[in-house]
Simulated scan of single mutants.
Amino acid sequence: MGDEHDKLLPIANVSRIMKQILPPTAKISKEAKETIQQCASEFISFVTGEASDKCQKENRKTVNGDDICWALGTLGFDDYSQAIVRYLHKHREYERERASAAAAASSAEFASNQTSSHTKRS
């Protein structure tokens, strides 16, 4: 039974997500949490397996976000696919902006250090 539980999402994460949707006074039974845990884990495996098959056919080892979006569409989850595509684009945009900001900060720090070292030599 250990193998099966290794493939499940952590129950605390599942519970936290479920609680975000429900009114604050609502309670969730252990059975409900475990059922959602099983379903969500199975869904992730199903979609990832489809994406992985695509990657194997294309001789690629890395499953990426585009592969997951493709798998969702292929499996008939078009509504999810479109939402995930939008999320993926926003995520990539955010990562590019973060990388640019980090590069700019690094350049500024380098320039500041260069100025400091020139001042110290004088």
Rank of each mutant, 00 (worst) to 15 (best):
1 M>E: 10
1 M>Q: 06
3 D>M: 04
3 D>G: 11
4 E>Y: 15
7 K>V: 06
9 L>K: 09
16 R>S: 15
16 R>L: 13
17 I>D: 05
18 M>H: 02
19 K>Q: 15
19 K>H: 12
19 K>S: 13
21 I>Y: 08
22 L>V: 01
25 T>W: 00
25 T>D: 14
26 A>M: 06
28 I>K: 04
28 I>E: 09
30 K>L: 09
31 E>S: 15
31 E>Y: 10
33 K>S: 11
34 E>Q: 13
35 T>W: 01
37 Q>L: 04
38 Q>P: 06
38 Q>E: 15
38 Q>F: 07
39 C>P: 05
39 C>T: 09
42 E>A: 10
43 F>V: 03
45 S>T: 05
47 V>Q: 08
50 E>H: 04
50 E>W: 03
53 D>T: 02
53 D>Q: 10
53 D>H: 07
54 K>D: 08
54 K>T: 07
54 K>R: 14
56 Q>P: 05
56 Q>W: 01
57 K>N: 10
58 E>M: 13
61 K>Y: 08
61 K>M: 03
62 T>Y: 07
63 V>Y: 04
67 D>H: 11
68 I>G: 01
68 I>W: 02
69 C>D: 13
69 C>Y: 07
70 W>K: 08
71 A>P: 10
73 G>K: 05
75 L>F: 05
75 L>V: 02
79 D>Y: 00
79 D>I: 06
81 S>C: 13
83 A>T: 05
84 I>E: 00
85 V>H: 09
87 Y>I: 03
91 H>R: 14
96 R>M: 08
96 R>A: 11
97 E>M: 03
97 E>F: 05
98 R>E: 15
100 S>K: 10
102 A>V: 09
102 A>T: 11
102 A>E: 14
105 A>K: 10
107 S>W: 08
110 F>I: 05
110 F>L: 11
112 S>K: 14
113 N>D: 04
113 N>R: 12
115 T>R: 10
116 S>G: 06
120 K>F: 14
120 K>M: 10
120 K>P: 02
